[in-house]
Amino acid sequence: MKFLALQWLRFRMALSFFTRLPTGDVSNGNDEDFGRSFIYLPFVGLTIGIVISLLTPLLQFLFPPAVFVPLLLAMQIYITGGIHMDGFMDTFDGVFSARKPERVLEIMRDSRVGAHAVLSVIVLLLTKAGALYSLYQPAASLQGATLETVLHWITLWRWESGFYNSNGVNPLYLSLFWIPMVGRWAIAYGAGRFPYARQQGMATLFNKYIDEKVLRVAEWVTLIMALIMAGVYGLFMMVLVRLFVDRWGKKMTRFLGGLTGDIYGATCEMVEVLCLLLLVFLQKG
């Protein structure tokens, strides 16, 4: 019981740091608990996905797609406190500055927003909104979780595409549910795979206490979720995400000596967009 209580505390610490969702009192955790909470990032992503996918029907009922899709993005930003979006902006403000590594790190730490950050986040949000709009199907909706509907869902599953391309299943709901989990797994994977570029910062605790064995468990859980939601295509997406994070992490490590908290946030945002674009390709294909 003590072990489970400790893991529950660490999960709530991760949830309190990466979201605005209520978590209760987590002040009894120490630096090690905070550092090891990083491994629960995929489950934080899944929690975000559950909240957003449950609120989506209400927005869909109240507004047309051209309005409720931007509201979905606003809701995501509110729930996360914009922490990953802020990291994305800071990262591209520094990377696109064409300065030396030391200066790039200073720019990334600067709270002021530059033109490169604004342009980059505009492109990111437009691409994400366009992908979500493309996944929307007005005729498809989620049904209540009765035994009959659960059995019906099982019959809709296909080995090549999971629940995608199935009549009666809204791909937008599915994507909102599990893609945040993949984006946050990418952060955990990048933190375990590459060194930290700074000597100080809260993210140094994540890099210090990360556990490779536990990291593999989080990876397997995310992979299983991808297989359930998107079948073999989900497996293909996970392979592409891992290749992307490897490539991105190596590039940033050669340039800056490692990753930073801002780069973790940028990684999450880019992986989410990559996954959404792949799912749009799956739907249209």
Rank of each mutant, 00 (worst) to 15 (best):
S161P: 03
G201R: 00
L223Y: 06
M13A: 06
V113R: 14
Y196R: 02
N170H: 04
V221R: 06
G249I: 04
C268P: 03
F34S: 01
L9W: 00
D262A: 07
M252C: 11
M75P: 05
C268I: 01
Y173V: 12
V273N: 01
R254A: 15
V69I: 15
R193C: 02
A203T: 09
S53K: 03
D25P: 05
I48F: 01
T127P: 04
F43N: 06
A129E: 14
N28W: 15
L227R: 02
Y136C: 07
C275V: 11
F3H: 14
F88Q: 03
V44Q: 00
L132T: 06
P22N: 04
K100S: 15
F3P: 08
E102Y: 00
I187N: 06
S111P: 09
Y196Q: 01
G231N: 02
V182E: 11
L55Q: 10
T23M: 07
L105D: 04
V232T: 09
F38D: 12
A188S: 10
R36M: 10
D86P: 08
G81E: 03
G114T: 09
Y264R: 03
F92K: 07
V123I: 09
L259H: 05
A186I: 04
F255H: 13
G201F: 00
I224P: 02
Y78V: 14
F11S: 04
V51C: 12
M75I: 11
D86T: 08
L276I: 01
K251G: 11
V239K: 07
L215P: 00
F177I: 03
I122R: 04
L256W: 05
M252P: 06
T149R: 04
L174P: 05
A5G: 10
G190M: 09
A188V: 08
A230W: 10
H152V: 00
L41T: 01
S27W: 05
G87M: 09
M225S: 14
T253M: 08
L15Y: 08
G192Q: 02
Y40P: 09
I48N: 00
A66D: 11
I228Q: 02
K100W: 13
L54S: 11
T127S: 13
G261S: 00
Y264E: 01
A197K: 09
L151N: 12
G81R: 05
I52K: 08
L277S: 06
V280T: 06
L124A: 01
F11A: 03
I210K: 10
L71W: 04
W220D: 08
I187Y: 03
A14D: 02
V123H: 14
A98G: 08
L6C: 11
I210W: 07
G81F: 02
F11W: 07
L119C: 13
P70C: 05
E32V: 10
F244Y: 11
F163Y: 14
I79K: 11
S141E: 10
N165A: 13
R99I: 00
I122S: 07
K251M: 12
D110Q: 01
L274M: 09
N207L: 11
Y40M: 09
M1T: 10
V245D: 04
T19W: 02
I263G: 05
D211V: 01
D25Q: 10
L46A: 12
P70M: 06
R193T: 05
L4Q: 15
L41H: 04
R184C: 01
L256E: 05
L58V: 12
L21S: 15
N207Q: 13
P195A: 03
L21W: 09
A188E: 07
V51N: 09
W185I: 03
Q76W: 14
N28M: 13
